[in-house]
Nucleic acid binder design. Structure first.
Lengths: 203, 203
DNA sequence: ATACGGTTTAACCATTTGGTTAACAAATAC
DNA sequence: GTATTTGTTAACCAAATGGTTAAACCGTAT
């Protein structure tokens, strides 16, 4: 089987690249460091991925397509807004606790190169908010929840879930707490965030 | 007056460095680009600030001390929690609309080098949450607001204010909107966020 | 006028960095 | 078995980059 070796190497490279890019960013990452981490010669990086830019894009796309379906699945299921909020916050916070590097990586790199998101948008599976927005509109009309736009509710929910991960060092310093306690606070948010939101919008 | 010239240059450098560092980050910034932007010779950067690292730290400290007092002022004044939330969200969002680069810069660089925050903590004027926490505790006890910890309420408030600026490109893509509309949404949040929070915690 | 201090510049330097090459190794095909 | 393709490496390269230096500049005091 001739594929054995190169598949291994290709995966090893991607894993190493993931690790380095996600902790140091595109600009901070060094090709040599990626090669070292993968335990192979630097030339192999170019053999499999041609350039730093392309290797980076592979990592980024990979990371993004890990995050996007999570959003989509919940936004488009058939439960009520309240149910959706509960599922979303709990799932998303759990997910990010497993991949704490991810949100920051994606946000950081999207800020560095805004055009990047366009490539993602063209991918199938890019999250679509239409159903959620319509649903919010309906529930507001039926007086189930207070008057709020789908966009604002979505931004609020996303902010409450993601920001503690992105702003971790800042928040940790501001509330003057250590790593362990901070993780407990995050853990508590799996439920707290949903309650906070629902408390706010439920009539 | 011999100070005239160098003060000008020093300030010109800091301004240019601010601009470059805040849009490209420490790793992405180039000393030559900073010099070009300041309209001076690259050697001057080292004459006034010795190294890239020190120049960066000057910019960072500068940026941070622009943000910190904002927090402190509101957290330590004598109004009720509800008043504080209102002031805080409105002030903070207004502030960030004026400096849209700032939150991302600070968060990005704190993630790159977590030790950095320690230096900031030693500065006088680093925000202190004690009063706010005590106040939340009291208002919960008096049944003015629902049961919530000061930390969680603070994290929620900060998240709702800051995240839309940090995650701007991502959110813009997700809610599928253009720059102008997005700015309107942000503008609306000056009031929306406070209402959202107060709705949630007020009994 | 001249000597002196800080300021500014062009040229230079060592190192790092992304990327290439040419030769070697190891499968696979014939 | 041998030719051929694929995978891997060490050595190399040019460009970029942070930083230095030595000389020039310029306002001021003597």
């Amino acid at each position: 089987m001739k594929k054995k070796k190169d598949e291994n190497t290709e995966v090893k490279i991607l894993d190493a690249a993931k690790n380095i890019f996600q902790s140091k960013g595109m600009d901070g990452a060094r090709m040599q460091e990626i090669a070292d981490r993968a335990g192979i010669n630097k030339a192999m990086l170019h053999y499999y991925y041609r350039s730093k830019q392309l290797l980076f894009e592979a990592v980024f796309t990979n990371a993004f397509s890990l995050l996007a379906p999570q959003l989509n699945a919940i936004l488009n299921d058939d439960s009520s807004i309240e149910e959706k909020i509960k599922k979303f916050t709990s799932n998303y916070i759990t997910f990010m606790m497993k991949h704490p590097y991810l949100p920051n990586f994606i946000i950081q790199e999207l800020n560095r190169n805004e055009d990047f998101i366009l490539k993602m948008k063209n991918n199938t599976g890019f999250p679509n908010l239409e159903k959620f927005k319509k649903q919010v509109y309906e529930e507001v009309k039926k007086d189930i929840i207070t008057s709020i736009s789908g966009e604002q509710l979505f931004i609020n929910t996303l902010s409450l879930c993601v920001f503690p991960f992105v702003g971790r060092p800042l928040i940790k310093a501001l509330i003057n707490t250590d790593e362990v306690t901070f993780n407990q606070i995050i853990e508590a948010r799996k439920i707290e965030v949903a309650n906070f939101i629902i408390n706010s919008i439920k009539k």
